[in-house]
Design a binder for these strands. Structure first.
Lengths: 241, 241
DNA sequence: TGTACATCAGTGAACGCGCGTTCACTGATGTAC
DNA sequence: TGTACATCAGTGAACGCGCGTTCACTGATGTAC
């Protein structure tokens, strides 16, 4: 009888955890080769030297396996962003933004099919369950934290400005701020949303082949856009630059 | 014997053209229901009351049918952009930009699966043939034309600026300008590329469900971003605003 | 205008393949006494 | 420490389905003389 709560579980439990991991690994390889719709339980089982029905001991259905892959992908991308943002000194807001953007692009380039799974076209017939919602916000929370940290450093412009967001957007921005960037004013949230969509638009264009024949390779353009968006959001230049 | 070159071709030719159209229409419906990978020749034939092998008289393979749909989608999107840009007076650059952006979004919302086909994740195992390249540039050419028309109206800032694009990007921008926006300086091309990726990033986020729970509905945000990007590119405010 | 031939659209059967999921089962691992 | 029982992983066969593509064919449409 092992101690309760011990990290060394029974052999059965360890074997189960390991096989679950191996199934997801093989499924990710399938994903890369044939896309989300081409993900086949039978093929995964075959590759693992198992009989296809055995997989049902680990995932109740194909869609549940897909859900697990989606959650893993959001988590991996989110973690990459978190690590990158934690690299520079906390006060170097622009450095943290830069590092985060480049980490997102690097992760996407290294895991194009997992990126496509979460930021590409939705898989027809698949409805993402509630469990994917929280991991999906992990990356954007990094941006939120960064904005919140930038607050003391940005010039406090009270009163209405030209280019202030319209009422509906201001309202939505307030809710976004409440959720991921406490205290950040709607105008800054709105600018950050523009930068965020620009960032992912750029990554998707690069990965999905829209830049072929124009800004290809996209390194220079990417670096340039990241700086311009930092300017636009109003992030302080930081110590390093 | 009908006159050569007459628009009224033989019955056979007319029937062929009509069936080709019907096949593509039905295929588009399949696309909407099951995605690009779920597009099935057999299902299309079934719906049309034909036997599946009959389709091979019209398209040599499934991939060729997919290619036809892709080309049609690029053309439809490009045409929507062209029509929108031709709406306002030619000198109202900002109005044309605004109309073009909204037309792209409207087309995408009305044809989400065709949009996903061309701007979403690539279809695994499918390689787009050369024939898709030209139609693919049709939409962005509208932006190019708009920039070229704006040239006389933007302040001529010679000499190097802060925020000028780095050498590699400047070079690529020159090539882009040569192809779609003659005479437009690299700095403006670079800004337009940022705006263009922001625009498609925003449309994709909205269509693919990334805005659910934040800027949803996205109308207000979309309109706001379009204006801010117009500012950023440096488009003149126009007569209407 | 009429006939002989060529072209083409569509049929139906077949090939060879893959899929997700269920179910009754065997045998190993874990647990309670 | 040893035994009886419960839990669980994995098997293998089966169900019912779908797919792209080929091929020899029938019969209608078009064309040349």
């Amino acid at each position: 009888m092992t101690a309760p709560g011990s990290t060394t579980r029974t052999a059965r439990e360890r074997a189960r955890a390991e096989l679950t991991r191996e199934i997801k690994e093989e499924a990710r390889r399938q994903l890369a080769a044939h896309g989300a719709q081409g993900l086949s339980l039978r093929a995964v089982a075959r590759e693992l030297g198992m009989v296809s029905s055995a997989l049902y001991r680990y995932f109740p259905s194909r869609d549940d396996l897909l859900t697990a892959l989606i959650i893993d992908a959001y988590d991996a991308l989110g973690q990459a962003a978190e690590l990158a943002s934690a690299g520079p000194p906390s006060s170097d807001i622009r450095g943290r933004w830069r590092a985060t953007c480049h980490a997102l692009r690097t992760w996407a380039a290294a895991n194009p099919h997992e990126y496509a799974l979460i930021y590409g076209s939705p898989v027809p017939g698949y409805r993402a369950p509630q469990a994917t919602v929280a991991p999906a916000t992990r990356a954007v929370r990094v941006l939120g934290g960064l904005l919140a940290d930038a607050l003391p450093e940005v010039p406090d412009v009270s009163g209405s400005q030209p280019c202030d967001p319209p009422p509906e957007l201001a309202e939505q921005s307030l809710l976004v701020a409440d959720a991921i960037a406490p205290g950040v004013p709607p105008a800054m949230i709105a600018r950050a949303l523009i930068a965020w969509t620009q960032l992912f638009g750029m990554i998707s264009f690069e990965l999905f082949g829209q830049f072929v024949g124009s800004v290809d390779p996209a390194d220079s353009f990417f670096g340039y856009a990241v700086e311009r968006m930092a300017d636009y959001i109003g992030l302080p230049a930081g110590d390093a630059a």
